[in-house]
């Protein structure tokens, strides 16, 4: 009983201190963002590794067309940015940053595919608040999280990890980064990896 209380007290204090961790949310979203608090940093096991062929997929996008990974084979390097869910704090910050980073993707002959497990209407509304995005936003809603699951980044609560995959023109995975779900990955790490893939 004593141990239970000690642990309980420690956990409560820990959550109160850290549940308000900063995420620098834009005024653009005002009160529309749901803050789930601090989550378990990672909650899945990767099913692919660097050097593997990237699992192909076809997903609907918010522009209405269906996008497959295979359509870029031989043409473009591909960055897949899985983000956990629409209308959540860190995710709402990540893609607008990529929206002003198109120059890096162009320089290294790459396209960006943003994927969440949300449905198309939700993604439409959410991305409208980010402004016009230059990259494709795909819905992995049904079968729910199927693509995320095949890459091994589907969490036990049905959302995906915050993960980046860089796939070269031959369709081979060259970089995997599964970030702590509570943290936004640094832009320079992705840019550095894109440069490496482009140089190969």
């Amino acid at each position: 009983m004593k141990r239970f209380f000690n642990i309980h007290i420690l956990l409560t204090v820990f959550l109160l201190i850290f549940c308000g961790a900063a995420f620098g949310l834009s005024e653009a979203y005002k009160g529309n963002i749901y803050n789930p608090g601090i989550l378990k940093p990672m909650d899945s096991i990767l099913k692919v590794k660097v050097g593997d062929p990237a699992p192909d997929f076809i997903l609907p996008s918010i522009s209405g067309e269906k996008i497959s990974l295979g359509q870029f084979a031989g043409e473009k390097n591909v960055v897949i940015s899985f983000v956990p869910a629409a209308w959540t704090p860190v995710c709402s910050d990540q893609w607008p940053g990529y929206n002003i980073a198109k120059g890096f993707f162009d320089k290294y002959d790459a396209v960006l595919l943003g994927i969440t497990v949300d449905n198309i209407p939700t993604l439409h509304a959410w991305t409208q608040q980010m402004g016009k995005l230059w990259f494709s936003v795909l819905s992995d809603f049904w079968p729910h999280g199927d693509v995320a699951a095949r890459y091994g980044v589907l969490r036990s609560d049905g959302v995906s990890e915050r993960a980046l995959f860089v796939i070269d023109k031959a369709g081979i995975i060259q970089f995997i980064h599964v970030e702590d779900i509570n943290v936004r990955p640094k832009l320079e790490e992705l840019v550095m990896e894109l440069e490496k893939v482009h140089k190969k």
Binding site: G24, L25, S26, E27, A28, D93, Q94, P96, G97, N99, I100, Q129, M130, G131, R184, L187
Partner: peptide, 10 residues
């Protein structure tokens, strides 16, 4: 500001 914030960009 934040590089990632649409209003800051605007």
């Amino acid at each position: 500001f934040s590089m990632y914030c649409p209003y800051c960009q605007a």
